[in-house]
Simulated assay, not measured.
Amino acid sequence: MRNHFLALLFVFVSIGTVKAQGEAYQFFTKKGKKVVLKQVLKEAKSADVVFFGELHNNSLGHWLQLQVLKGLQAENPELVVGSEIFEREDQLNLDEWFSDQITESSFEGEAKLWKNYSTDYRPVLRFAKEKNLRFIATNVPRKYASLVSKAGLSGLDSLSREAKNYFAKLPMAIDMSLPGYVAMKDMMHGAPGNSDYMIQAQALKDATMAESLFEPLYAGKKIYHINGSYHSKDGEGILWYLKREFPTLKALNIHMVTQDQLEKLDDENTKSGEIILVLPSDSHTTY
């Protein structure tokens, strides 16, 4: 409780400090036009799926993530929420908590929670539960991504039928020429390990998160998906896999970045999403 209070205090102090200097955050279109949250939510009305590509440790970004969720839910009471932070193995825990079959403390004791869950993600989960929203654990279990990073996708072939329910259907396509994967390989140049296998592990995460959204999309549900910014940057990653299944999919990609100034969108951030959320470079982080 004390750590939670201190983290929230840091967030409010950060917001107050930046407000004293100017704005605490700024939304931009990819053309560099400033927009406000109300305009972002207006754009979201026509989207089948809204992505929030986050910086995992940015507290101010997580607060805005919750505000987007509140705005979407107000327009779509049957909104479906999905998130990278939960692996498919935790779906039962989520369902049991949301249906009040287990307590919140039991859920948190059983689920594989990220270290900043209580400060940064718990408010999102609590709001979704309060509004009776469906919440999907979309990510591949870490152990299977780790296996692929060491042995490639072929390492999954020998797993049981039950294990294969927890990741994207095999065989899965991978476009190794996608700029995001190429950049990832370049960053790994000279590092230990097989860079192609590492990209395959990343693609397994992207494909699994995308496939986890197929069923609600086929059912005509609007989706809000929370993931690390790299998984949806430039319309690649998860979006690449979704658009293979749904070529006419309408997506709104909100991409979070930090900059030293909030007056103008830096050139390198202009194509990262339809909406770019810019936060101060010195905004509070939880780790």
Rank of each mutant, 00 (worst) to 15 (best):
A20C: 05
F5V: 13
E75H: 12
K115P: 04
G228I: 01
L204T: 09
V257L: 05
T285K: 14
H4Y: 15
A44R: 00
S106A: 15
K70C: 13
L6A: 07
R244H: 14
P77R: 07
M184N: 02
K31Y: 11
K264H: 13
E43N: 10
L8G: 11
K112G: 02
T258P: 00
A151M: 10
V81D: 05
A191H: 06
S14K: 01
G109R: 14
A20T: 07
V13P: 00
L279N: 12
G61F: 11
D90L: 00
Q202S: 01
H189V: 07
L113P: 07
R126Y: 02
D157L: 11
L6G: 00
G109I: 10
E54I: 08
F127C: 01
K131F: 01
L113R: 10
N139T: 12
L178G: 01
T17E: 12
V124R: 03
W63V: 09
T17I: 15
A44E: 02
Y181E: 05
V148Q: 08
D234Q: 14
G237S: 09
W63I: 09
D100K: 13
A128S: 14
S154V: 13
S146D: 08
E96H: 14
N139M: 05
W97S: 06
K185P: 06
R122M: 03
I226P: 05
D196N: 15
D186Y: 04
S283L: 04
Y197L: 02
K70M: 14
Y121C: 06
Y25C: 09
Y218I: 04
L113S: 09
P141T: 04
V49P: 03
V257H: 05
M172G: 08
G16C: 12
F214T: 15
L239D: 13
G180A: 08
E84G: 03
K250E: 10
N57W: 05
A74L: 13
K131G: 04
A207K: 15
S99Y: 05
L277I: 02
E23W: 03
T103V: 04
Q91W: 08
